[in-house]
Design a protein around this nucleic acid. Structure first.
Length: 474
RNA sequence: CGGGACGUGGCGCAGCUUGGUAGCGCGCAUCGUUCGGGACGAUGAGGUCGCCGGUUCAAAUCCGGCCGUCCCGACCA
């Protein structure tokens, strides 16, 4: 209704999706570019989103049994070279410190691109016996990778993340834990909090983490049909245990190499949230994530309005909803409404004299734009109820979008066709070969992950009847 | 790192072809009128045109180099 009369404040998605993304970053006050190429300044509203992600992930990580620790930012360069695939994979993107205290250092220091190596060094020290296993660690940290093509949140030279590192006595135990993280931490968080549906699977062997023997991934579809890897969980086999002497004595008094895993999810998820849910009016934040879940807007100045709005804020807060009051009656209403829409606050409640005459307020959903009049007395309960409703509806809408933009394909050409606008689901055999890989790469399409036909995660890519999801990606 | 576009007050842009004392819209400040979907008027603050060098009496405008941003690739959370 009123939507048609609104002047767009950001570039419409259909017109220029990358520009829409930039506009949202600016208008919703999420982040700015930093002074050094590829770095970003995360503004308070954007950091609020990250803090909620941290809190929700951290809770799940602890439920999975891992404890937080902290390892240093600087890593001796020699550590990186201990695992050959790891060095090879990360060397091109390292930031290296060669001077300190005004002198050239005897050994250059690497600014961590990830911490498998330092963690490995200390795991070796801390683990003596099978009784010390499993050792389940996590750290929240910043890491640096000298990216060639940075994009705010999606690929920055410095980013924030959590990186988990675990050591186990057996391959089976390590594999089970890597899968547990994928399902119980990442998928549970992304689906139930971020309301982003996922394809979970393994990465093709050529696309594994440097040094891993198996990489599990969460792939999400953005609203332009491209894929974003939202998190990964790796089985590292005994590669790092061998490189760092992570040994333990088993029950028979024999020295054994441990089996390790690592897993990470980063500030990239903020970019994923923006692109998975955002629309032409800006951000849409699912209630379970929002650090501002509802905003009560005083439409006009006035004692009655003021009193009613403040009481409503208190009542809504009592119903367990994180609520803000917008009492900036000096600013034009339209401006304020637009601001809250840009920021994606799930529900707004408009309180003005017109409503109050009938003892009502207007409740508006950000996800659908639906407006309803509710009685002042019933408003807080209605808002509280909407939280769950919106959460469910956003996941349903995102799932519907993903499914309707995922097409079955049987040939390379069909894959390319489907991947031009969305995802292709294709028998893994069709795209597994080198020629197929090259044909897809020619159109910037890659295999995002490999699943079993029933949607479960396979043990390896050689199982029969696997399906691959292919797409263009960020 | 390869290809393309671009860099002019906080943001978005014009000016550059045909060198000659920097302009528009939005935003911001003050005042007034407004106020249920980014209000209007008046007044005002704010830039030396990404950086370095060259040509010239004179450079935002021409030439060279560098840096940065965005897009498309390759690399990647």
């Amino acid at each position: 209704m009123a939507a048609a009369r609104r002047a767009p404040v950001i570039t419409p998605q259909a017109e220029d999706f990358p520009r829409w993304y930039q506009d949202v970053l600016n208008k919703a006050e999420l982040a700015d570019n930093g002074p050094v190429r590829g770095t970003m300044v995360i503004r308070p509203y954007g950091f609020g989103l990250w803090e909620r992600m941290q809190a929700e992930l951290d809770r799940r990580i602890k439920l999975a049994g891992a404890e937080n620790a902290y390892f240093p930012l600087f890593i001796p360069q020699s550590y990186l070279t201990r695992e050959s695939e790891h060095v090879e994979g990360f060397s091109p993107e390292l930031a290296v410190v060669t001077h300190g205290g005004g002198k050239e250092l005897e050994e250059p220091l690497v600014v961590r691109p990830t911490s498998e190596t330092v963690v490995g060094e200390f795991m070796a020290k801390w683990i003596q016996s099978y009784r010390d296993l499993p050792l389940l660690l996590n750290q929240w940290a910043n890491v640096v990778r000298w990216e060639l093509r940075p994009r705010v949140f999606l690929r920055t030279s410095e980013f924030l993340w959590q990186e988990g590192h675990t050591a186990h006595a057996t391959r089976e135990d390590a594999a089970a834990y890597a899968a547990k993280i994928l399902h119980e931490v990442y998928a549970d968080f992304m689906v139930n909090v971020l309301a982003i549906p996922l394809y979970l699977g393994i990465k093709p062997s050529y696309d594994r983490f440097a040094g891993a023997v198996n990489t599990l991934a969460c792939e999400a579809m953005m609203r332009d049909g491209k894929a974003l890897q939202m998190g990964t969980s790796h089985e590292l086999g005994q590669n790092f245990a061998r490189a760092f002497d992570i040994l333990y004595l088993d029950g028979d008094n024999n020295q054994q190499l441990a089996w390790t895993t690592s897993w990470g999810a980063s500030t990239r998820m903020v970019g994923g949230l923006i692109m998975a849910h955002g629309d032409d009016n800006g951000l849409r934040i699912p209630p379970a994530l929002a650090h501002i879940q509802a905003v009560v807007i005083m439409v006009r100045e006035g004692d009655e309005v003021d009193a009613a709005a403040r009481k409503l804020v208190a009542d809504i807060g009592d119903h367990g909803v994180k609520v803000r009051l917008d009492d900036r009656t000096g600013a034009p209403l339209g401006r304020r409404l637009t601001d809250w829409e840009l920021k994606g606050v799930p529900v707004r409640i408009e309180v003005g004299p017109r409503e109050l005459e009938r003892n009502e307020v207007t409740v508006v959903r950000r996800d659908t734009g639906d407006k309803q009049r509710v009685s002042v007395e019933g408003a807080s309960a209605a808002v509280a109820e909407l939280m769950d409703q919106i959460q469910d509806d956003m996941l349903a809408a995102a799932t519907e979008f993903r499914d309707s933009n995922t097409a079955d394909a049987a040939t390379i050409n069909e894959v390319l066709d489907a991947a031009a606008t969305g995802f292709a689901r294709v028998p893994w055999q069709v795209v597994a070969g080198e020629d197929a890989k090259a044909a897809l790469a020619d159109k910037a399409v890659t295999v995002r992950c490999i699943e079993r036909a029933d949607g479960t995660v396979p043990d390896n890519e050689n199982e029969p009847d696997l399906v691959a999801y292919c797409a263009r990606s960020y």
